[in-house]
Simulated scan of single mutants.
Amino acid sequence: MLIVIFVLVLWYGSLFFQSFFLHRYAAHQVFTMSKVMERITFVLTWIFQGSSYLSAYGYGIMHRMHHAYTDTEKDPHSPSHDANLFAMMWKTKTIYQDINKQRITVDDRFTKNVPQWKGFDKFASSRFSRLLWISIYILVFVYFATAWWHWLLLPITFLMAPIHGVIINWFGHIYGYVNYQMKNTSKNLFRFDFLMMGEGYHNNHHKHASRANFGVKWYEIDITYLIIRLLDALGFIHLKPIRLKD
């Protein structure tokens, strides 16, 4: 039971910081925060994403490119142009690394105000850091796994962030329902997004990319947005005024 709780904490902790920090802050900047709070969030993202840590800089730029080029050949990740989800994951990894290591030229519109902490990112993305987290996960399983099937969950801890990305960027463009007919394949995965904390309302997000709340219908409860509202009320962050049109 402890192993299941451990994996669930990593799942939702990693997912929250990917949605809250990398997606809604770094890529879309739907709220602001102080430099100190930003640095704290960098560290928390590393702690919860662990071996699959993603930099805000690489993620933010790549996600902006996804919105600009959705479902075209320039899209960093699209079921419309990738043979399968593994091919898409490899392509995404390559583009992400090329951005971070500045091996490709990126249009200025994609880099504007994207947060970057070069020194920390270099450490958090290093082989040492990733192997350290993998070792910690293995030790946790050695001490607390009590059933053979618990070990089937171990690879998920290694690849948490890419798994979250695949669910939205592959399945979120194939399965689900739409509230808005657009010139792309984005879908809403769930009526109530219990699995992805609001990220599953992908069709809504492509229609209103600058909105903090990804839910539109009354039943589309965006859990990450509710936490954002709480953090705003407590003064940790500051939500920008709601924009009904992008």
Rank of each mutant, 00 (worst) to 15 (best):
R191C: 10
S19M: 02
K93N: 15
H150W: 07
V43Y: 00
D121W: 05
L10Y: 06
H28T: 08
F144L: 12
I5C: 03
V36I: 00
D75A: 07
F20C: 00
W11M: 08
K118V: 12
E73G: 09
S80C: 01
V7H: 03
M62F: 01
V216A: 05
H205P: 08
I47V: 11
I228Q: 00
V140T: 04
L2D: 06
V36S: 08
G119R: 09
W90K: 14
R103K: 15
I242M: 14
F214D: 07
N203H: 05
F42E: 14
V114D: 09
H208C: 13
S14R: 02
W46S: 09
H150R: 01
W151N: 08
V4N: 08
W11H: 12
F214T: 03
M37R: 06
W218Y: 02
L131I: 09
A233T: 04
V114C: 12
Y225F: 09
K245R: 12
P162G: 06
F31R: 07
H205D: 06
K93C: 07
Q102A: 14
L244E: 14
H238L: 11
L132P: 05
R103M: 12
G165N: 15
N204A: 06
L239H: 12
K74R: 13
Y201R: 11
R109D: 03
I134G: 06
I95W: 13
P115E: 01
F17M: 00
Y57R: 13
K35A: 01
R64D: 05
F171C: 10
I104L: 15
F214Q: 08
R229C: 13
H28L: 05
L244Y: 14
Y201W: 10
S80A: 15
S80E: 11
P79E: 01
I47M: 04
W170K: 05
N84R: 06
F171E: 01
D232W: 02
M62G: 11
F214E: 10
Y175C: 13
T157W: 09
Y53G: 01
L44K: 07
P155D: 11
I3W: 00
D232G: 06
S78Y: 03
T72L: 03
S186G: 10
T105V: 15
I167E: 08
G119D: 09
S126T: 07
F110G: 12
A147N: 13
R24K: 03
L139F: 15
L195Q: 00
A68T: 02
Y137R: 00
R243F: 04
P76E: 06
M33G: 07
I227F: 10
Q49L: 02
K240T: 04
K217A: 05
V114F: 14
N213L: 02
M182F: 05
F194T: 09
L44C: 02
W117E: 12
I221P: 06
F6N: 00
N179K: 11
V36E: 11
G235Y: 02
L8S: 03
F31H: 11
Y53C: 08
Y143P: 02
S14I: 04
M197H: 13
A209L: 14
L131P: 01
A68Y: 05
Q18K: 05
A209I: 14
I104W: 15
